[in-house]
Measured scan of single mutants.
Amino acid sequence: MASQGTKRSYEQMETDGERQNATEIRASVGKMIGGIGRFYIQMCTELKLSDYEGRLIQNSLTIERMVLSAFDERRNKYLEEHPSAGKDPKKTGGPIYRRVNGKWMRELILYDKEEIRRIWRQANNGDDATAGLTHMMIWHSNLNDATYQRTRALVRTGMDPRMCSLMQGSTLPRRSGAAGAAVKGVGTMVMELVRMIKRGINDRNFWRGENGRKTRIAYERMCNILKGKFQTAAQKAMMDQVRESRNPGNAEFEDLTFLARSALILRGSVAHKSCLPACVYGPAVASGYDFEREGYSLVGIDPFRLLQNSQVYSLIRPNENPAHKSQLVWMACHSAAFEDLRVLSFIKGTKVLPRGKLSTRGVQIASNENMETMESSTLELRSRYWAIRTRSGGNTNQQRASAGQISIQPTFSVQRNLPFDRTTIMAAFNGNTEGRTSDMRTEIIRMMESARPEDVSFQGRGVFELSDEKAASPIVPSFDMSNEGSYFFGDNAEEYDN
């Protein structure tokens, strides 16, 4: 783990906690998980779902989305002020799938948001429990990260689609708070800032007046979040320049895209947490497990152990491969979309394939898809080993990566060399080191050039047997250095459309 220093740990961010010791953190995270579980059980009762239907990941996603929508204050306010045809701002819903006479049927349900809020609060001892809501947002974000390569979004903001390893959390809503900021990748933060800068260039009043003052505060806050992700002084200094700019424009845009590229080699610290679907927490609570009393951590053995003992089902389209669908969801559960496939294969105990080789589309089923041909199958979400999630980018030494994705962002704290394609990355730096950030740029390029592919990161860190909950005997895996390590390699994943 990167030293926490003055930073709060993510469990504290996750639970809005002030400084807590490890036991208190485990208890408050457990409380959050228990609340999600209780809410899910109650919703299944309301909807009269069978046990099997309640364990269907598509039903879980609909129920999670309903509660997130019920608590989305800004959108609710907007919907009330701008009524649109056929949208009731006070209601929320989605597809629920039921097994009827041996076939899967889709039923569109509609609930009062007020009623959903009441059920959620009741499951969370009367609190709004925003930490639990954020947790579900991060699960949705991790699922998107594993399912889609955001080529269009990258290109629109002047970045290269091969930089997708920097895009963790790119679909997280803005209201996801400190826990959300911690899991956002460098590219995601750059993209958010670039969008602001572009608006400022096109709209003279963007930075002016009372609204402009708020915009400015948001801009500086985002700059500080991004600065905190960088691990070298030169990158941090460049972020200070971007933040202090009187009138952010093209120079800042250039600096930010430069920094994003540099992060492929001088990786930023991005938190990883295993956020599971509500249909995993519900049955665990129903079986009598007391998360608050037992304590829970999002970055240790607990999620692995929970998945070892969970039964989750998914709808499967006619030509999809259930094992591939399982891999997709497994990666999402562990926030591992940008991790090295060699490491993932070792931990999972079966070969993890790149996205383009998977015969599976996303987990969600569109409303126009034919239910007649839908089957369902068990998702295999178990693992051979477990490993500690990392909050750091690993040290800054790398190795060759593949054509589709030119770097990785480690999820697990496991000893290995970190793949990246130096030639491709360095070719993108057209040696432009003039301007006010020239000395920093020169320094950053120097550090990137001296990074050695064969150097090892996370020295001495290994994986653990599932029986080793105290992480007492690390097993340090050895990897084939020459092997392909990137998930979005030469990829044809669908595009994420909101």
Rank of each mutant, 00 (worst) to 15 (best):
S3D: 00
Y10C: 13
E24S: 01
E24Y: 03
G30P: 07
Y40F: 11
Y40D: 06
D51A: 07
L56K: 03
L61I: 15
T62A: 13
E81Q: 12
H82P: 03
S84E: 08
G86I: 01
D88N: 11
P89F: 02
G94V: 11
G94M: 08
I96F: 11
R106E: 05
L108K: 07
Y111G: 03
R117M: 10
R121A: 13
Q122N: 01
N125L: 14
N125K: 07
D128W: 01
M136W: 06
H140L: 15
H140Y: 14
N142R: 04
D145T: 02
Q149M: 08
R150H: 10
G158M: 05
C164F: 09
C164Q: 15
M167K: 09
G169H: 14
R174E: 09
A179H: 11
M189I: 14
R195N: 05
M196G: 03
G200I: 04
N205Y: 10
R208M: 11
T215Q: 03
R221Y: 09
L226Y: 07
Q231Y: 04
Q231P: 09
A233I: 15
A237C: 02
M239P: 00
L266M: 13
C279A: 14
G282Y: 00
E294H: 15
Q311T: 14
R317M: 05
E320K: 10
Q327P: 07
C333I: 10
A336D: 13
V343G: 06
L344R: 01
T350D: 00
P354Y: 01
K357W: 07
L358G: 08
A366E: 04
N368E: 05
E369H: 05
L379W: 01
E380N: 04
R384E: 02
T396G: 15
N397F: 02
Q398E: 00
S402D: 07
Q409A: 12
V414Q: 08
Q415F: 02
L418F: 07
T423N: 15
A428C: 12
T442N: 12
T442A: 06
M448H: 05
M448E: 12
R452C: 14
R461A: 00
F464V: 05
S473W: 01
M481Y: 03
S482N: 11
N483V: 02
G485R: 07
N498E: 09
